[in-house]
């Protein structure tokens, strides 16, 4: 009787307090049948990476609307890599100008979603690109 589920973490790094989007996403991922670990606001990249490993998630979803994504997103990806967990997919979203996309992809992020991205398209991306691991 085996049934695999996608485990996904939604985290807000840094001092940014805009948590509405993160909460909406957490609920939407639950409704898509995922198991969602929500860690709330004001997390350091270290806390996020460590929690992702403890929870054995398939995906870490970072949300940042304050403009600090250029530093915070790569920091999480780097820490995961250092701890041998770069098989965990990192994606991000929030207020992110297009000229920053390449920098984030280069840092290891697999996708970026900005305001206007529909919830359906986000869930669709996860379902297509993430398989619960063995």
């Amino acid at each position: 009787m085996s049934e695999k589920k996608i485990r996904i973490m939604v985290a807000k790094p840094g001092l940014d307090g805009h948590d509405r989007g993160a909460r909406v996403l957490a609920r939407c991922f639950r409704d898509a049948g995922f198991e969602v670990i929500y860690t709330g606001c004001h997390q350091t990249p270290e806390q996020i990476a460590s929690a992702a490993i403890q929870e054995d998630v398939d995906v870490v979803g970072l949300s940042c609307l304050s403009g600090a994504h250029r530093y915070l997103f790569p920091a999480v990806a780097k820490l995961l890599k250092e701890q041998g967990a770069d098989d965990i997919t990192v994606v991000g979203g929030g207020i992110i100008p297009e000229q920053d996309f390449q920098l984030l992809y280069d840092a290891g992020l697999k996708a970026i979603f900005v305001p206007g991205a529909t919830l359906d398209s986000i869930v669709e991306w996860v379902k297509t690109n993430i398989k619960p691991r063995d």
């Binding site: 589920k5 957490a26 198991e35 969602v36 670990i37 997390q43 350091t44 270290e46 929690a51 929870e55």
Partner: peptide
């Protein structure tokens, strides 16, 4: 209804996330 879940207990325990002597699993 959906088979999904929001695991939110961890929010309250995140200050221990970096302590190697603590392992939290939801």
């Amino acid at each position: 209804f959906t088979g999904g879940a929001i695991l939110g207990d961890r929010i309250r325990m995140q200050r221990h996330a970096e302590d190697p002597g603590v392992f939290v699993r939801s």
